[in-house]
Write a protein that binds this DNA or RNA. Structure first.
Length: 282
DNA sequence: TGCCAGGCTTCAC
DNA sequence: GTGAAGCATGGC
């Protein structure tokens, strides 16, 4: 079963490389194809770079129920792009280079653990560690064609596993405590999915968790709770804000979706970091 | 090889 | 409330 649809402002490669998720992987054999997992669902997404046509390998029901929401396909990203300040040359370029990015609606639990791991860490290593965690402790599945994949481990599964020596470094104690507290229901992430909960209430609750500070809290809010006004400030965002915004990003101007603008900037910074490194290598 | 990474906790002040 | 040290470890 297969679904072929045309999408605007959707680029699976940009999404995979935008640093908001760590489990979308390029298929090693199928051209222009990416392997995606969320909760207990697996899908292969195929798109020729620059083309609007996108093929989802899942059945139509899963596309509608699961992946449509995951990729935020009801979101009007052209509206966000049109809102960019014309005089903001930096943001205009960043948006034009990452116009296929969408803010994924990831599972809140997975986002919380993933971004806890991400602190003071590099993206290749984050991906590797999360993959190992999934393979070791997550529920495994096999597709009809033999593809094997694993769910992100639940809190209970993580409590059963050994979290040392899988590359977590000093963060293992944060994950261990979080998993135990979620398992014992002393910490709950679901209540923050309620729209009546304000962003600052969610942020303060997240920051009260051992191992979560302002940056990780905002990542969880943006990528796991789809609170689009959250702006995570990591070393790259801080660099961009210092160089182009005199130390203060105009969140007010982009009220309601400033986190989307943040993502265009983060992606731009990542892309140009790579370009600079390649230049330096010759 | 040494510096850096989608930072946080702890402690001094 | 602010500032600085310490943290594990792989990527480059």
């Amino acid at each position: 079963m297969e679904n072929k649809i045309e999408l605007n402002n959707f680029d699976i490669e940009q999404i995979a490389n935008s640093g908001q998720c760590f489990r979308i992987k390029r298929h090693p054999e199928k051209e222009n194809t990416w392997k995606c997992v969320t909760k207990a669902h697996y899908c292969e997404v195929t798109q020729v770079p620059g083309e609007k046509e996108v093929v989802f390998s899942c059945d139509p029901d899963d596309l509608k129920r699961v992946w449509w929401k995951y990729f935020d396909l009801d979101g009007n990203y052209q509206k966000y792009i049109n809102a960019v300040d014309e005089e903001d040359e930096f943001l205009r370029v960043a948006v034009s280079e990452g116009s296929g990015i969408r803010i994924l609606k990831q599972d809140a639990w997975e986002a919380t653990v993933s971004f806890m791991i991400s602190q003071n860490n590099n993206i290749p290593r984050i991906k590797k560690t999360i993959e190992l965690m999934c393979v070791l402790y997550g529920t495994r599945h096999e597709e009809e064609d033999g593809t094997i994949w694993a769910e992100f481990p639940t809190a209970t599964q993580l409590c059963r596993g050994n979290l040392e020596n899988i590359g977590l470094g000093y963060r293992d104690k944060y994950i261990k405590m979080l998993a135990e507290n979620v398992k014992n229901r002393e910490i709950s992430l679901r209540w923050m999915e309620n729209k009546d909960v304000t962003d600052s209430e969610a942020e303060n609750y997240l920051k009260s968790i051992y191992g979560i500070g302002p940056k990780v809290a905002n990542c969880i809010m943006l990528f796991g709770l789809h609170r689009l006004d959250s702006v995570p400030k990591d070393t790259w965002m801080n660099k961009a804000i210092a160089e182009h915004y005199n130390g203060k990003f105009p969140t007010k101007r982009y009220e309601g979706f400033s986190g989307v603008m943040q993502q265009y900037i983060f992606y731009y910074m990542q892309q140009h970091k790579q370009i600079e490194e390649e230049k330096n290598r010759g």
